[in-house]
């Protein structure tokens, strides 16, 4: 490729912000892949809506990361000129769309977390993050409602939809633990009242998720083995393909403005 990746000074606050920005961008990108191909027009609208919410969150978070870093980087450099190993998103969010059940289970697992997370972050001592949290919480509350309704329709719909939804839960479950993992870098931000401890959200998340999964006549896996690595840039093989598509234009035409 013609254009080299940027260097990022990952101070704890920059890294923290990039992780959340990458979550939003990668899931937003995945949802945008559905555009024009959804099972019904109403759902084409809804998936695009959620994708737009997430892209909006990503842009605000990247802009803030750029400001905190104080170098020459901006939202597009963060999105388009970092390689796989520099991306910090959760593994769950880069998993391919698969069928509609897989997309909805991924959305539900994440939205149920993000809604709690952003609600707690509204109390952040960092006013920019608190403002982003307030906006993101409203959006993720809708994402939880939308994806919960589909969980129930699919789980309690037909035999085929039940089978597909259960298989998506079984395949994606091992990626949910990473959402609650805390590394030492973030502990300082928590102590300073800037970030919140995601581990504290596990119990309420599990309560929401179990409630919906039960109503959907589906079941959560027994296994507690969880995959990790996204936060440190150790991704699944899927992310590289996503990035090669997402980044193709700025990588091909160095220095152009679009």
């Amino acid at each position: 490729m013609a254009v080299a990746s940027i260097l990022v000074s990952e101070t704890p606050l920059v890294l923290y912000t990039l992780r959340r920005a990458d979550d939003a961008l990668i899931l937003g990108h995945r949802l945008s892949e559905w555009c024009g191909h959804a099972p019904m027009m109403e759902e084409d609208m809804a998936l695009a809506n959620m994708g737009l919410d997430l892209l909006g969150q990503a842009r605000e978070l990247y802009a803030y990361a750029a400001k905190v870093e104080g170098k020459d980087n901006d939202e597009d450099k963060f999105a388009y000129l970092r390689d796989v190993r520099q991306y910090r998103n959760l593994l769950l969010l880069e998993q391919p769309n698969g069928d509609f059940a897989r997309t909805m289970v991924r959305q539900f697992f994440y939205a149920a977390f993000a809604d709690l997370y952003w609600r707690a972050m509204m109390q952040s001592g960092d006013p920019t993050l608190a403002a982003i949290a307030a906006k993101s919480e409203k959006e993720s509350a809708y994402h939880v409602r939308h994806s919960s309704e589909w969980m129930v329709r699919l789980g309690d719909g037909t035999e085929e939809s039940h089978r597909r939804a259960q298989s998506a839960i079984d395949d994606l479950w091992a990626y949910t633990g990473e959402m609650f993992h805390l590394d030492e870098g973030e502990r300082g931000l928590i102590d300073a009242g800037i970030a919140i401890d995601p581990a504290k959200l596990h119990a309420p998340w599990l309560k929401t998720v179990s409630g919906v999964v039960n109503e959907a006549t589906l079941a959560l896996p027994k296994s507690n083995w969880m995959q990790q690595g996204g936060r440190d840039g150790r991704h699944s093989e899927h992310l590289g393909h996503l990035l090669s598509e997402l980044q193709s234009m700025p990588r091909t035409f160095p220095g152009a403005t679009w």
Partner: peptide, 27 residues
Amino acid sequence: GNWITRAPSLRRKAALLAKVQDECGHG
């Protein structure tokens, strides 16, 4: 829609996704 995943900036990506969504709404 074929260009949403390759739009050259985040601003263009959001605008294009919103545009294609509008077309669905028109439909």
